[in-house]
Design a binder for these strands. Structure first.
Lengths: 245, 245
DNA sequence: TGTAATTCATGATTTGTATCAGTTTCCTGA
DNA sequence: TCAGGAAACTGATACAAATCATGAATTACA
């Protein structure tokens, strides 16, 4: 998977048809679910529907924040990079989520990076329109507030975990995060999300070697099954016990 | 300093007079700064002004979230506790800040704990009133949105630092956080905030021994001066260089 | 002011984790 | 089907950090 495709290659696909937000299949699981009709109209009029291929960059930390994206379909990793170039995955996004929302006013820069893990469809809304909407449509703003609140809680939990967990605990936790974010294939509990060991390491806040080691250990305990990137969480409870130390 | 005073000892001081939010000295540096007059009236009518003594608990993680506090005066530490009982300080609050704001709707529990470091004056607003206000006063809600956004950014940064920094870097960072939160005494750069080594360790995400060691090292390099809890940041730039690795 | 109780500093030890190197496995494309 | 390259695994080593133990310093309190 090539994560370094040029953003310039991003463009609306030919014949990619318009859809009104009111008819969008993910409206009900998004911040738009209680949105005023006028507000939906305004978004529908201003948005641009865009495709991203797997591995393509959607947001770049530090770049000018042109606006936000409503995700219609796809799996996306949201991460930050430290001064030494090390990445930490903060969270994942999927259909119904919004990304780039944290950079539309006080600062004109994105504070996180985002890369499509799978092919993705998203609707882009420019920052100015977004800001205007949050000033004029209380129901929309209120839903946004709830969304932020949720993100803040999750991020606070992540801070705590990064600060206090051991590496094996963090890896177990990372697997559970992958499970919670995108689920598993049917009853087998084989994760729908396949990441490289390096990506899992960035999610857990450790190194790829330690991830290999931790996964081997979990395998030998019979808690998970793993062949390459395909991981089956056999014993969810045991995994939770480890992750909650 | 006794951090375990019973919450039961909390009560409004006798003769602690009412003040309308419009006249509050910290209104302009709070989320109320652009608030509609009606909204201010509603808050003024519903709020209760309360004193906390140094060391007294204000919020307890997991407890029923009765409402939020507007801080009028004082220094407060906001932290979370993991399953092993280890605390991590997430941030500090002071005049103009709000605390307990993250738990007023989807969940009825506080997700963080808060303890007054110094004597504190705060205004309590019950969760129901708070929620109603965010539904009916767009300017208030919009300011709240900005506040959440800011907190989320800061917390994301903290996650990154916890995941990637070495212990000496985290301690240097912790000292800078203490400086940014509450400043220093005049030109001497002696921190206004005095914390135990254990508290600094909880802020940095390490142990009190490592904090002692890191502080000794910084002292011998001439970057800081420290006698007990009084720490003077002699060379801020050098400290920043370490903290930004 | 003196004594007890904390807190702090410091060195020794042990544990945990990152780094490095070598090998194997897996995956992809010819 | 095979070859080449990338990713994953594994063990060795070195480094970093937590833990433990002790004495010094500071603070609280009588």
């Amino acid at each position: 998977m090539n994560y370094e495709n040029s953003p310039l290659s991003r463009k609306p696909s030919a014949g990619f048809e318009f859809m009104h937000c009111a008819d969008c299949k993910v409206k009900e699981c998004s911040v738009l679910r209680n949105c005023e009709k006028e507000c939906l109209d305004a978004i529908s009029a201003a948005k641009k529907r865009i495709r991203f291929v797997a591995g393509q960059r959607i947001l770049m930390e530090g770049n000018h924040a042109r606006g936000i994206y409503f995700i219609e379909e796809g799996k996306i990793k949201i991460y930050k990079t430290d001064n030494k170039g090390q990445d930490v995955i903060l969270r994942f996004a999927k259909e119904g989520d919004i990304i780039g929302y944290n950079s539309t006013e006080d600062s004109s820069e994105y504070h996180v990076s985002a890369i499509a893990i799978t092919d993705t469809v998203a609707c882009f809304l420019d920052a100015e329109t977004f800001r205007d909407l949050t000033r004029h449509y209380p129901d929309f703003t209120f839903e946004l507030l709830r969304f932020y609140k949720k993100q803040l809680q999750l991020t606070e939990n992540k801070t705590l975990r990064m600060a206090t967990m051991t590496v094996p605990e963090k890896v177990a936790d990372a697997l559970l995060i992958m499970y919670e974010a995108y689920g598993s294939k049917g009853s087998s509990r084989t994760l729908n999300l396949t990441l490289s060991r390096q990506d899992i390491a960035n999610l857990a806040g450790t190194t790829k070697e330690q991830v290999s080691k931790a996964i081997s250990d979990l395998k030998s305990q019979g808690i998970i099954e793993a062949k390459g990137k395909h991981i089956n969480l056999v014993d969810l409870d045991a995994l939770s016990v480890i992750a909650q130390h």
